[in-house]
Design a protein around this nucleic acid. Sequence first.
DNA 1: CAGGGTAGCT
DNA 2: AGCTACC
Length: 714
Amino acid sequence: MDNSADEMEEDETEWQNSFVDPAAPTPAAAATASGPSITKTHKIILHFDLDCFYAQVEMIRNPALREVPLGIQQKYIIVTCNYVAREQGVTKLMSVTDAKEKCPELVLVKGEDLTHYREMSYKVTELLTSYCPLVERLGFDENFVDITEMVERRLAQTVESHKFSFKGHVYNHISADVQAGDHPRLVLGSEIAAELREAIHSSLGLTGCAGIATNKLLAKLVSGTFKPNQQTTLLPENVSDIMGSLSSLRKVPGVGHQTAKRLQALGIIGVKDLQLFPLNDLVKEFGGPTAQRLKNLALGVDDSPVTCTGAPQSLSDEDSFKKMTSTQEALEKVQQLLSSLVERMHKDGRQPQTFRLTIRRYSATNKWFGRESRQCPIPNHIGLKITSGSSEDAVVQLLPVAMKLFHKMVDGSAAFHLTLINVCFSNLQPRGPAVSGKGSITSFFSQSTSPRKTQTCSSQCQDDSCQSGDSRLMDRHVGTHIQHKSQLAMNSTSSSKATLHGFKWKQSSVVAVEENQKASCSTAGLNTTETNSTKTHLLPPNVDPEVFKLLPEEIQNELLSPAYSDSLSSTSKSSLATDVPHIPKNKSSQPFTDSQNITEVKKAANQLDSSDTATAMNHQGPPGTSAVPEVNITERLSFPRSSDCEFPGNVDPEVFSELPLDVQRELMSEWKQQKPILKVPSSRKQPRSSMSKDRKAAGKSSQANSLFKYFKPT
DNA sequence: CAGGGTAGCT
DNA sequence: AGCTACC
């Protein structure tokens, strides 16, 4: 076993000749390579592709479905179907009507709720990860695994007399004609692939295909060559065969619609065209890196590493529909999407820092494509509601935030027609023990916490400990996997919902609630959220709103930026100190610095019609059409009347007013509870009663009043 | 493209 | 924030 290095050298020449790998070799098996100048990079990559994944999951849930033609339906299309249905001509992404026509017996199961698929998907990835740490997900049903190290270890243990033979198919070779001895690593790769497929089948009941090759591109391409439940190895000598077999450029992973079109414009139609196309000309159209990459892909060359996917970087929920034309419908849809998303987020355990709302508008031309989104930071107090499991509270507080974003894109006073709404949490921060020894599990997610770039997990483990301990033991044979299987079995039966797609990096169980964040939450909460132009009432006191409106947006944004208002507020504060003695010295008052008369809010909420509230009611009109000039808003925002009825600064009154009444009520009580941390001066000179009537006086608000404009509405 | 997700680059 | 890509 000591001579493994020698064997590798020989092997190296073989694969190295097979294609040009222009990129600098990765450190790969450098540790075991003995050649002085040649760094060995003979990677062995597996690609797993589960058979008709959604259909399999449904057939596991209801075994009776195994014997009937089954289609998984999302809206009006069959996203996938089992092989019984395929025999009758049903295909993926076929419309329901076409499918029923082909196969009247087709049994349909709704597949819009991805929960079960997602859970099963993560179990597969988790299982693979337990054997080999370098696993990259591609969608819900595919995984890449870099097994280079595992292969090298097995090779080192392989006895001289070992008889090499491939498991499964070998691309373009008939069965047993291959001199397997020439490709020991790929043989071992095929054995490992077979074991992993068997593990997936025995512990999860899923079948799938695998491709074994020397890079991701090739592994993926070859995995599909024998379709259900089989595996195929691609030898380096057959790379050009498989690339040449592709019917169009679009079949090359990495070449999408747009790229294909641009290539076509250059007269590049097939893979061979691209292989032969002068790189220089390609560079002119695509730029250096992309041009080289495209050419490489056409040649079957792909040096991209298998990157550990880890836990998802965002969670989203969406729904599409034929038409949505009122903000009422939108609000209800957003609420329902939020409910499930918040639940999922809670189970994940991490705390989202960013919320995004995206829409798709209908238009006769260009009906598809064209999504618009707006995002904003999530105030910490809401984030904590999510992680702590106060889901309803979280939804209630997120709803106005979402609607605010909605109205940044959709003018509620004009006609609109939406066909999709999506809600998304991102910038997911691990919560956990404040101090994490870098020792174990916690270090796993501490990496993702900081910068954000999942480590590339360069193929050869930099951290040998992670591999050696576990992998070596479970490396050898299926028998050693039994332990894992039972673990997984227990896992799947006992954990049901709580564990969900729990990786070790999931870390959700560790709940170290950091109460001290309250202080910092306030600072984080505010200023960040605003970039819109219509908020002249947010302006620093020394800026004329009329002038402001005329400024370029960049400048406007700068004026509104935290940095600017910070510096400004400190000066203002000192100058205002006498005027408004109760203003706190820090800006921590933010989330709740804005204030509003509670009776006004209540009245607006209830759409009362008393003359007293008539003016306030104007704000409920369609945004932008309000007959009430912004002074009114400013005015209201500038005069907190009563200490027990603060209106949080990040809430847009107009949005608030369109929320369901019960949500308004809930929000109000929330805010009251939060009130203790509000640092807004509670005692104004003016008794609140005068406020509602005397708008003009308020409108002429002094500098002191203007200060409140920092505590931005909307 | 459909559909309900994802991720990375710009 | 949008585009492109992947499933």
